[in-house]
Amino acid sequence: MKIALVHDYLTQRGGAERVFELLCKRYPEADIYTSLYDRQKTIDLSDRIVNTTFLQNIPGAVRYFRLIAPLYFPAFRALNLQAYDLIISSSTSFAKAVKKHPDALHICFCHNVTRFLWDTETYLREYGDYRYFAPLIEKVFQLMRNVDLEYAQEPDLYIANSSIVARRIQDIYNKQAIVVNYPIDTSKFVFSASKDEYYLASARMISYKRLDIIIEAFNWLGWRLLISGDGPEQERLKSKALDNIEFLGHVSDRQRKDLFSKAKSVIVAALEDYGLVPVEANASGTPVIAYGAGGVLDTQVPRETGVFFKRQTPESLQAALLEAGQITWDYQNIRNHAVTNFSESAFFSKVEQIIDQAWRMHKSSDLLGEG
């Protein structure tokens, strides 16, 4: 079976890219395709050949990859994937648009619907100049929504990372999706049953992560809070924080795993479609205190692996923090939860069963069609 692996663009290293990296490792003989590739800023593909689109030849495209959004659909449609039996796309936007041979099977790992098209205001509100160009952008985006809907019909099967994403795929694309929670490399996180006297927030400093809520809550409580990560909101957030809150900036992988393992709890205030941070915390034996919506509903067990707060307010978070302080946590059980449900082996056990079943059904329908 000849396999092609396709990702939107490889110009950064986020959760979607980490999942694509796992797929590339799992299928070492597969050919890799993407629109743009920056070896220095994305996942490690070793010496694998990465096939790109005509966008790679546009000066500045790799650096300003978000500004050329209307060009991605034609770029992916221009790829010649007619020789492949199985196409596995990894997409939050464009890679699902690739054309396949009529006898081939296309399975899309859909991390989300095309968010900047279907939730434009939320996606772009962190860009201050957005409002000045909103009328023009809206006209362009309306045309792109129509194209997105059309090309969303290309995959034969969708796999979603969470229940909320599966619902969006159904509601917007009118396509059913199988939910398979994405994994982490549990070997990269260290377990500790001994916790230090600090709480941890680990996130990029952008508005939707709602670090402002966390800072306000800890300003009031006076408890020690460490915040790792950087981003455009960093200076504004620092100006709001009292002395019990420490900003660490970007930390190394070694520092990060130590921080996760020793924290009393990891705090997540964002509405995440899935969210790897809560699972990474659990893999370290650390409970999570999270806004109770989105992906955490799939990954956390209330009062066993974490505590939810109901509203994105400092007061609601404070109540959850106080509740968590009354729980006698079984840190080993928290770690076991992550390893059992979110390891790579658990993930691929489910995925390969789905692919095998989809392939058999696909070939069976082909034979019925010939008959």
Rank of each mutant, 00 (worst) to 15 (best):
E150I: 07
R256M: 06
F116C: 03
I32S: 06
G222T: 07
F76G: 02
T11V: 15
T92L: 05
S284G: 05
L226P: 05
S261Y: 12
R18K: 15
E216L: 11
Q176E: 11
R66S: 09
T305A: 00
H101R: 15
S192H: 13
A69W: 15
Q56L: 07
P74H: 12
A104N: 09
R63H: 08
W223H: 06
A30R: 13
N336E: 05
L242Y: 12
V266E: 04
A217G: 14
A193F: 06
D356Y: 15
D148L: 04
I43K: 14
S252D: 04
L143F: 06
R254M: 04
Y182D: 00
R204G: 01
I58H: 10
V351F: 12
R39G: 00
G292N: 13
I169L: 12
V6C: 01
L71R: 14
T53N: 10
E138R: 15
A4K: 14
I58T: 05
Y199R: 13
R210Q: 07
S93Q: 13
I206N: 08
R66I: 03
E370G: 09
L200P: 01
T42Q: 15
D8R: 03
V288N: 09
L45C: 06
S261L: 09
L23S: 04
T313Q: 08
D185E: 12
V288W: 15
N282A: 08
H337T: 04
Y127D: 04
G285Q: 02
F348I: 08
R360S: 05
Y151S: 03
V62P: 01
S162K: 14
A78N: 13
K264A: 03
Q312E: 07
A283V: 02
I159F: 06
D129M: 14
E352A: 02
V301F: 10
E138G: 04
R13W: 00
S345C: 01
H362I: 06
E21A: 12
E233F: 10
D330R: 14
E272V: 03
V279H: 13
F218G: 00
D156R: 00
D298Q: 12
Y33P: 00
L55T: 09
Q353P: 00
Y274L: 05
Q332E: 12
A283Q: 02
L157M: 08
I327P: 08
E344Y: 00
L297G: 02
K195H: 07
I159K: 11
H7F: 03
Y151E: 09
T11A: 07
E121M: 06
M1Y: 09
S91D: 04
L5T: 01
A217E: 08
D31H: 11
E370D: 09
E29N: 15
A283Y: 01
I137K: 15
E280Y: 10
T52S: 06
L79D: 02
D185T: 11
H7S: 10
L67H: 09
L10A: 07
L221T: 06
R167N: 06
V6F: 00
R204V: 03
A104H: 13
E154D: 07
N341C: 02
I245R: 14
S93H: 14
P59R: 13
Y173F: 14
A152K: 13
I334G: 02
L221V: 03
A324P: 12
T286F: 10
